[in-house]
Amino acid sequence: MQSVSWLRRRKYGLMRLGLLTLAAVLATAARAEENVPNCEVPPYLLATESKLPKVAEAVKNGKPLDILVLGSRSSAIVSTSDNNAYPFRLQAALKEKLPSATVNLSVELQPKKTAEEMAGSFVKLLEAKKPNLVIWQTGTVDAMRSIDPDEFRAAVNNGVTELQDAGADVILMNLQYSPRTETMISVPPYIDNMRVVAQERDVPLFDRFAIMRQWNENGDFDLFNPTHGIELAKQVHDCLGKALSKLIIDAAQLGPVAQQN
């Protein structure tokens, strides 16, 4: 009888341990799910009437989609080859959404250069890279140096013209949002002028500033607290890459049928 009782107690103990372990696993999974950042972007922030015909042509005809990202230090986290930075998260997202397409991506960082200084290298860069799509992230250095907004607009306009004349689609990307730097530099004139150029040159504008501000105000990311460091940067860049992939697919009008071909 004692042996039977001992076996019952042992069986009950094992069952209880199993239930506790399952509960712990579920609790851990729930916590992990809670920590997954909310990458949602209001549709109006990704809406554009401008098209990306070169991107559409490459994907629909089975040609490689060659993307060149022109940016400053905010286009990277640690280095230009950091797979956690938004350019490479963009590439990963496009490969997932366009499984039959070959997506090549290269990054050209030009830190501490104004829009005018960056544009000076475009001809040689495009001759070497021959991209279908150029994503030009600019405005930060101009704002920090207090470059005349009209001169900034002219430089961006000239740069976009050169990129288009070289046969590439263009996406403009504005400054990243930071609650701290916003109090130190005047951002609106540069954001407004980039929007004007995007409209005049008929190119999509990826409003990184507004998107990141939305995430911060909604509590999705605490961009004011600098202690989060690299991990926060990785999450933000991952979300930016996903949002940018949606803009590209929508602007190139790559619906479900085109994505499967």
Rank of each mutant, 00 (worst) to 15 (best):
W136T: 01
G255D: 11
L240Y: 09
S245A: 15
D165Y: 08
I67L: 07
L126Q: 10
V203Q: 00
G255W: 01
G18E: 01
I77S: 03
K51T: 03
R16A: 15
P53K: 15
D165Q: 15
A258L: 06
Q110S: 13
A85L: 09
P256Y: 13
D150F: 06
E33H: 10
N216E: 06
A47N: 13
P256V: 15
A166M: 01
N216A: 01
P226R: 02
L125V: 03
L105T: 14
P99R: 06
S178D: 01
N84F: 09
L105D: 06
G159T: 09
K63H: 11
R89N: 02
E217A: 05
R9G: 08
F206D: 01
S146E: 13
A23R: 01
M173A: 12
A251F: 05
A92C: 00
E162I: 13
E108W: 09
E40L: 07
V160T: 12
V123S: 11
S3H: 13
G219R: 13
V156R: 00
E162P: 03
V103R: 06
N61K: 14
L26Q: 15
L133W: 00
E182M: 05
V25E: 05
T114K: 04
T181Y: 07
M1Q: 08
T102D: 08
A92L: 07
V107K: 09
P149N: 06
N225C: 02
E49F: 07
T28K: 04
Y44F: 06
K129H: 02
D169L: 02
E33M: 13
M1C: 10
S74T: 14
L45K: 13
A30Q: 14
T181N: 13
Q259I: 13
V69S: 04
L247P: 05
L22I: 09
N261I: 15
S74W: 02
K124G: 05
L22T: 12
D207M: 03
P226F: 07
I211C: 11
N132W: 04
N216Y: 11
I171T: 02
L232N: 05
L45A: 12
I185P: 05
M15V: 05
P43A: 15
M1H: 13
F88K: 08
V59Q: 03
Q235M: 04
T140K: 04
S75Y: 12
E57L: 12
D148S: 10
Q259Y: 09
V156I: 02
N38W: 11
E231K: 03
T102Y: 05
I171E: 00
D165T: 15
K124W: 07
S100N: 13
T21I: 09
E57V: 11
N218M: 11
T140F: 07
K95R: 08
Q214I: 08
K63Y: 00
A128V: 03
C39N: 10
T227A: 15
A258I: 09
P149A: 09
A154D: 10
L17S: 12
L52R: 00
V187L: 00
M15Y: 05
Q260C: 10
V197D: 00
V203T: 04
Q176N: 12
E49A: 15
L98Y: 01
M144D: 10
P256D: 15
L133Y: 01
S79E: 11
N83W: 10
P64S: 06
M1V: 12
K97E: 10
E49N: 15
F122L: 14
L205R: 00
V69F: 05
L205V: 06
P53F: 10
V141I: 06
